[in-house]
Design a protein around this nucleic acid. Structure first.
Lengths: 118, 118
DNA sequence: ACCTTGTTTAGACGCTTCTCTAAGCAGCTT
DNA sequence: AAGCTGCTTAGAGAAGCGTCTAAACAAGGT
């Protein structure tokens, strides 16, 4: 309820057009998956890694959670199309799918996306 | 588990640096609020509106939900810092706080944000 | 003052989510 | 082939979320 006008009259970016219920459902599913601190940390851990790939065992080591719990979160990320994985011998490696994140980013700030595509 | 390499070797954007648990918690809270189709539609409804402001009654009319439910979602959006509101006479108007959305967008795609800030 | 309309708060209830333990599968290594 | 390690699946329980109805609060109009 603060009366701070002025935060919104500088650039007009934000969310483009009104969303259909279906489009909203699709986007919401992705955002919901991002709405957990553990998954966000997993994602940034993968992204920060040189080579862009991380073994599940490295992820598990970075958290104070059991293996199955990490596996659960990785599955959520996978099913949301945010990461993909591949087994190589004993280990399973995960990497980020940038296109999906780009899509979400674009929804939040169409102006940035437009600027980037020039 | 699909073997599609190559989706990630074209541009290297994605998520910048490894997140601290605290930073992750803050971001996750915002993304969680975005992780609901109704809230996403409310947001896009406000954003699409000429003038950038919408009365609660207009929002309520756009959904097949009760007033209290809409009020609940608006509160979530408000407490996440994504929107702000002001009462004017009988009606309460909501608008989007672009800075917050920009921050989230930037997390998802640092490359876009960098390009936009030039 | 009172009633009417717009909005929020409180409380209840069913469904989903996140975590765990136990058990299963996959691929080395000996 | 038997056992070891890495990872996933299955099932259970506590906590959280989204919806509703009922009631309260806020402003304006008789």
């Amino acid at each position: 309820m603060s009366k701070q006008e002025g935060a919104r009259d500088c650039c007009e970016p934000t969310v483009s057009e009104a969303l259909t219920p279906d489009a909203a459902a699709g986007l919401a599913r992705s955002f919901k998956v991002l709405g957990d601190p553990v998954r966000l940390r997993i994602l940034s851990l993968i992204a920060a890694r040189k080579g862009g790939e991380v073994c599940v065992c490295d992820i598990t080591d970075a958290f104070d959670l059991t293996g199955p719990t990490i596996s659960y979160h990785l599955r959520q990320l996978r099913e949301a199309g945010l990461v993909d994985c591949e087994r190589r011998g004993t280990w399973v490696y995960y990497w980020i799918i940038p296109a999906r994140l780009g899509l979400l980013s674009q929804f939040l700030n169409p102006a940035d996306a437009a600027a980037a595509s020039t």
